[in-house]
Amino acid sequence: MRRKAMLAVFVIAAGLTVFFITRAIFFAVFWMDPERGLHPVEPWMTPRYIGRTYDLPRADLQEILHLTPGETPRVPLEKLAQQRGIPVEDLIAEIEALIAARASK
């Protein structure tokens, strides 16, 4: 009886191993896909993080976000949008336009 239980757990563990390997390969392939392009800008990102990730000049970004030249607060986009009473999608669209404009240069 105990051997049966052990065998059952063994089969489940082996199945889980295959399951996780498949998933790991799937995510790795998805990640490496060159067609996928850049990761989109998301509401949790902070001004500095965006600047570094998409290689944007600080001044341009500060202009979009209505920040003064000395300001790079650790505040996510979502909050910056809330403070100005605009939807966060608007900020994201403006930033993505800036990224696209710089990429086409």
């Binding site: 563990a13 082996a14 889980l16 191993t17 399951f19 996780f20 390997i21 998933r23 790991a24 995510f27 790795a28 998805f30 990640w31 850049l38 990761h39 993080y49 570094r52 990730t53």
Partner: peptide
């Protein structure tokens, strides 16, 4: 930095596979 979500998805499953 820029790819933490993709990295986390992949690595989480690698750890799962190793443990199982």
């Amino acid at each position: 930095g820029t790819q933490i979500e993709e990295l986390s998805d992949t690595l989480g499953n690698v750890i799962g596979a190793l443990t199982a």
